[in-house]
Simulated scan of single mutants.
Amino acid sequence: MKKPSAPTRSELRLLQQLWAHGPSTVRDVHERVKDETDVSYTTVLKQLQIMHEKGLVSRETSSRAHCYKAAVEQQATRQNMLDDFLNRVYQGSAAELVVQALGLSRPASREELEEIEKTIQLMKAQSDSGDKTPREN
């Protein structure tokens, strides 16, 4: 099966709604996004139809109101988008991305820096043990 294409910004906004709220009708999704995006019902419907064709969402058609569900996992989508961004913008350098993210665009808070430091220590320990599987703290 063909890998779904990366979602556009507006598709990602709809996917985020489906990840957060689960399977939803077009009306449900529209109600949740209309205030922040000023998008029409028909635009949401068309976007979900296109997303279905792209393999980003699945659709249940047994009732009059079609119910859409994310067909891609949130974490996998984030990882794919980050990998693509890292390669396109930073030529694959995670260090350059981190330096940019931590200081130049918006300084990280002390709490964020402490969390990052814990993650780095965990990654170093995993690297020393030969374990390449990322773990969450």
Rank of each mutant, 00 (worst) to 15 (best):
G55F: 01
M51R: 01
L104H: 13
R27L: 12
R59D: 01
L45K: 10
K118Y: 03
Y90S: 05
D84K: 10
P107S: 05
L113W: 09
V72A: 00
Q91L: 08
A70I: 00
R78A: 03
Q47A: 08
R110N: 07
R64Q: 09
N80K: 11
K124V: 10
R59P: 01
D131W: 08
L45Y: 08
V29S: 11
R110M: 09
K54I: 01
E117F: 09
E96R: 07
R110E: 13
T119Y: 02
A70Y: 00
E111F: 02
Q79P: 00
G55L: 02
E36D: 15
K46H: 14
K46A: 13
Q126G: 13
L113G: 02
I116C: 08
E96T: 05
T119V: 03
R110H: 10
T77P: 00
Q75W: 01
A65D: 05
K54V: 00
T37R: 14
V89G: 01
N87V: 04
M123A: 15
D38Y: 14
N87Q: 12
T133H: 10
S127L: 15
N80W: 11
Q121N: 14
G92F: 12
V98F: 11
K46Y: 11
T43K: 11
I120L: 15
K118A: 14
Q75T: 10
S129T: 10
Q126A: 13
F85M: 13
K132L: 15
S105M: 06
S105C: 07
V99T: 08
A65Q: 05
R32Q: 08
K69I: 00
I50P: 00
D35V: 04
S63H: 08
M51S: 00
L104A: 09
E96G: 11
A108L: 14
V33H: 12
Y41T: 04
L102A: 15
D128M: 14
E112Q: 15
S129V: 02
A95R: 14
D38K: 11
A94P: 03
Q74P: 01
L104V: 11
R106M: 08
M51A: 07
S129F: 03
